[in-house]
Design a binder for these strands. Structure first.
Ligand SMILES: [Mn+2]
Ligand SMILES: [Mn+2]
Ligand SMILES: [Mn+2]
Ligand SMILES: [Mn+2]
Lengths: 220, 220
DNA sequence: ATAAAAATTTAGACTCACCTAAATTTTTAT
DNA sequence: ATAAAAATTTAGGTGAGTCTAAATTTTTAT
């Protein structure tokens, strides 16, 4: 029903709106889609026509219930394929995103539900992002940022909020992957950089910029 | 490089030409692509421009070496995904073709080679069709047709030359799937229908039309 | 050999998803 | 409150891939 381009817009609106909460601006969409604002306007008119978004000229755009449903389906497919590529095909977590951008548009529901079962119904993807259910619910995964943890605390790494391959490669090298147990040894007041103990290994430094993009939960 | 539509044309030209041997007519392509002859002409001009086909007006079309390479890549992807869906996801062999028609256009070579390894380098797909190698060679699989077997002989079912879901479902019900051992008990002179023994089960009849589309090899 | 039929190509349009340039509306700063 | 700046939309195009209708070429039949 929704074309490949339409699916990409809906998914992007979902992400940029903070899971559908706020309005998204034309320019924000243009920047992320690598297109021009005029092209975005054209698409928004079409999506509104199809009742996939609420759109009033100059007022930004929000997903309708129907639009959100499509967006969550696309996100579900994307994340399940990422799990498949990492767990079954042996890809690294920094390699799978561009391929999942293509696979997410294969529409067969039968295919995706069988894939889900084959993967044992994973609840999150290799980056720690939650996988929407077949029924179209996004599991809420509310994590803290590592940069907000105080010295002396021990936490578990749960995911990332930045998906650039170079960032992910840096984390792998430091042993910082979902599941890693991290103790904050020291925090440098000056630049907010952190000295960490990661899974029994020797201490590592991470900058505030890195810590800001690492999602954690406090160990019980 | 080649668009989705172009890939579909190249694959189709390969099949209709008998693996690249003969010229293919505009009308034959129009019929199979569910488009009009005029649209096919447009596309052939474009493919010729890109050096993917040899094309002279009114003379039909043939793949270039480069075009054949693309066609074989697409066929490789199609068949590997079919194996994946049947062997790993539990699809039936009559369900996978339409989904593979979409998956075959995911271009990542890394993905397809890892999938190949994950599947243990299968040499044929669920329908018995050979899978082109990563190097772009189509393994030759020269089988006889069941309709040409004489009474009293025992053969092994290797594949089908007709892929309609209804035909495949009929075969499954009769227990006629690749690997089945088949003995020809009787052949009816009048309509060339056959009485078969399939894998130790009681005898079954198949029409000439069915036997003509079953590929076999003689048991050693 | 010629005329009719069939196959194919050309001409002119259409939709989708994008573009640039120009207008318009909204926001921000004075 | 007004002018400048920023954001957004409108106007008019483009290329890919398709269409219908008309013209052309090839094939078939007499
Ligand atoms: Mn991703
Ligand atoms: Mn992810
Ligand atoms: Mn198939
Ligand atoms: Mn097949």
């Amino acid at each position: 029903m929704a074309s490949l381009a339409e699916e990409n817009y809906l998914k992007l609106i979902y992400h940029l709106s903070g899971s559908g909460a706020d309005e998204v601006s034309t320019n924000a969409l243009a920047e992320q889609t690598q297109t021009r604002a005029a092209s975005v306007t054209d698409m928004l008119r079409k999506l509104a026509e199809k009742n996939l978004v609420h759109y009033k000229k100059y007022q930004g755009v929000r997903l309708t219930a129907e639009g959100q449903e499509v967006a969550l389906q696309v996100i579900r497919r994307h994340r399940l394929w990422e799990v498949f590529m990492v767990q079954k095909l042996g890809f690294r977590w920094d390699e799978v995103h561009p391929i999942a951008e293509e696979l997410e548009h294969i529409a067969s529901e039968e295919l995706i539900n069988r894939l889900d079962a084959f993967l044992d119904f994973p609840v999150s993807d290799p980056h720690g992002d939650p996988i929407p259910t077949a029924a179209g619910k996004m599991p809420s995964a509310e994590y803290e940022k590592l940069c907000e943890v105080t010295a002396g605390k021990q936490v578990t790494m749960m995911g990332v909020s930045e998906h650039a391959a170079s960032f992910l490669q840096f984390l792998s090298k430091a042993g910082l992957i979902p599941g890693s147990v991290v103790s904050v040894l020291e925090i440098n007041d000056f630049d907010r950089s952190m000295l960490l103990k990661i899974n029994e290994s020797g201490p590592s430094f991470v900058s505030y910029e890195v810590a800001r993009n690492i999602l954690i939960k406090f160990s019980v």
